Amino acid sequence: MSAPVIRKASGPDSLVISDDCNHPANVICELCRLFFDKDWVTGTGGGMSIRQDNLVYLAPSGVQKERMKPENMFVMDLNTRDYLKTPDTYKPSACTPLFLSIYNAADAGACIHTHSQSAVMVSLLYDKEFRISNIEQIKAVPRITEAGYLDNTDELVIPIIENTLQEEDLTPYLAKTLMEYPAASAVIVRRHGIFVWGANIWKAKIINEAIDYLLELAVKMRSFGINTTGPLGIEKESPYHECSHHH
């Protein structure tokens, strides 16, 4: 048995090689594998970024998410927009300008972009906004413009923007939407996917999971003729609702 190789990196690689499981480069790899298993990122689709102070860690373009390694990461200085670390074989993600505009507008600590089928389906069922209320899982989403989290009786609103031919061309539309919806934690891109952000990566993960649950649920509710923003008891009006008849 040969002795284990201790990975010590010098130069730019020292920004991404670490034995700390909470290091941003390690966390991005861990979550990309997890989201691959959930079918949220497939076939190089989707992206992820973590911001630590003025450093932004970015998953590269064209890499299979479940095989990503820390050395594949890009690291950017948020102030100068210069790359401090670039991998040998990969290009920067097309999501990069979108992530930067989210960091700029929302003061987020992490951004997640998935190609979730539930997000795409919702973009086909709703026009300019997705809305849902009176579901327990809404309580996982923060209020953003004030302290605390939404109540289950609150209405969660997620804006929907049109897709563009090139992903980076979404940037001005995303920036405009972030100004119009300061309380948003996510933006859906029609026929494409969703961007979700949070104060740090673990909060962004929770928000992403909660929102995807609500999107999937909404698609099912709509398929049974139940309004996602109807009052409590609206489901009784669905033709599929089973009520007990006493004779």
Score class of each variant (00 low, 15 high):
P4I: 05
N208E: 09
Q166N: 12
C243I: 00
H113L: 09
A110E: 11
A110W: 10
Y83E: 00
K69G: 12
P87K: 02
K69N: 08
G230S: 02
V189C: 09
P182Q: 15
I234R: 01
S116A: 14
Q64P: 00
D20P: 01
P182H: 13
D154Q: 10
E66N: 15
L174S: 14
W202K: 05
H246N: 08
K69D: 03
A94Y: 06
L165I: 10
L217H: 02
A9N: 03
Y173D: 14
L156D: 03
I234H: 00
V187S: 06
P70Q: 03
R222G: 04
V196E: 12
V63F: 01
A184M: 08
M76F: 11
R190T: 05
A3G: 06
E155V: 14
T153S: 05
V219L: 09
P97W: 14
P60R: 09
Y90R: 09
Y149D: 03
G198Q: 08
T171N: 13
Y126T: 03
L165E: 15
L55D: 11
R81Q: 10
G43D: 06
V122A: 04
H113M: 12
F74C: 11
K205L: 01
L98V: 12
P142V: 13
K8R: 13
Y173G: 15
H115S: 08
T177F: 01
N26T: 02
T145A: 10
A218L: 03
D88S: 13
G233D: 01
D53E: 15
D77W: 00
T229N: 06
V5M: 08
S123A: 12
L34D: 11
S14F: 03
A183T: 14
P70H: 02
D20Q: 00
Q52N: 11
C111Y: 14
M73N: 09
A94F: 08
W197L: 02
I188M: 13
E146Y: 08
G46M: 08
F224H: 14
